[in-house]
């Protein structure tokens, strides 16, 4: 079966992509009710970190099979 690390990477990658895309969208279409510190766009850089970490786990384990 696939190692757990592959699934960890997959879910981080998927969620990270969604969060980054949402952040980029809201950059150009700002929401009406602004959150505290929204000007530093945590969704873009935090989502970006998730994408990088997720990608590393997926690529490193995509061909790995364990008993």
């Amino acid at each position: 079966m696939k190692p757990i690390w592959f699934f960890v990477g997959l879910i981080l990658l998927i969620m990270g992509i969604i969060i980054v895309l949402t952040g980029v969208y809201s950059l150009f279409n700002p929401a009406g009710d602004k959150k505290v510190l929204s000007d530093i766009h945590p969704d873009i850089w935090w989502g970006g970190i998730m994408v990088v970490v997720g990608l590393i786990y997926v690529l490193k384990n995509k061909n790995v099979k364990i008993d």
Binding site: T22, K35, V36
Partner: peptide
């Protein structure tokens, strides 16, 4: 609810 924008709120709740 104070800090997280759309998308991150979903992640926090998850």
């Amino acid at each position: 609810a104070r800090y997280y924008p759309e998308g991150l709120v979903g992640l926090g709740v998850t």
